[in-house]
């Protein structure tokens, strides 16, 4: 390194060291749209057929959910302030029940989604402070107007994961959170009341 001063060399080495340390370069904004489009296409091809058995559909939904969503982040947001008061055991069971609830809910929904089309149209930062991005998309139905769906995507060490879905401006996480909070409050502020209710829901939701 001809003509480079000691300080200059030190600076270069520091930069190189940092580059080596940072795990992966941040995702390009296009990557978010591509990620959502791929996920939507995969869901519509693999999950919608009428010939798929219920248990098979649920299995596929669970696999796709774990691949593309960060269930722990979502579950924690949905539980809100109650997360702090929960024991480790309660948290584990809650996340388990919560995942099951999502799986049965969406397995049932996808059964009706055959013949629809999915278009991810663009993305933008979730807010001025957040690194998350919101990917806009449209679900084109066979009958009726297109449905506006937005995906809040977070970069988990170079892997994009969905942490919220907004359907026609209604956030699934915020709505679910209000739902769970009401159950806990009517149960005297106890998280066990929610776990109980989720256990019952799991039994009745299975077809």
């Amino acid at each position: 390194m001809l003509g480079v001063t000691a300080t200059g060399r030190f600076l270069i080495m520091t930069v190189l060291a940092f580059m080596a340390l940072s795990p992966v370069a941040a995702l390009a904004s296009d990557a978010y749209v591509g990620f959502v489009q791929k996920m939507g296409d995969q869901a519509l091809t693999e999950l919608t057929g009428k010939e798929i058995s219920d248990s098979e559909r649920e299995k596929r939904v669970r696999t796709m959910l774990r691949q593309n969503f960060d269930v722990k982040t979502i579950g924690q947001f949905v539980l809100g302030r109650h997360w702090r008061n929960a024991t480790e055991k309660q948290r584990t069971e809650y996340l388990d029940l919560f995942e099951d609830m999502i799986v049965t809910t969406y397995a049932q929904r996808f059964e009706e989604y055959a013949g629809q089309q999915f278009k991810a149209t663009g993305s933008q930062p979730a807010s001025s402070k957040s690194k998350d991005r919101i990917v806009q998309s449209q679900v084109l139905q066979k009958d009726g107007p297109p449905v506006k769906v937005e995906w809040r995507v977070r970069d988990f060490g170079g892997k994009p994961k969905v942490i919220d879905v907004l359907i026609e401006n209604v956030s699934m996480s915020v709505t679910q959170r209000a739902d769970f909070d009401a159950v806990i409050q009517s149960g005297g502020g106890k998280i066990d009341a929610l776990l109980d209710s989720l256990r019952k829901h799991r039994k009745t939701a299975k077809k």
């Binding site: 924690q76 302030r81 997360w83 807010s127 402070k129 957040s130 998350d132 996480s173 915020v174």
Partner: peptide, 10 residues
């Protein structure tokens, strides 16, 4: 400017 997700933890 309010971000529902980043402010909703408490």
């Amino acid at each position: 400017e309010f971000d529902y997700y980043d402010s909703g933890w408490e």
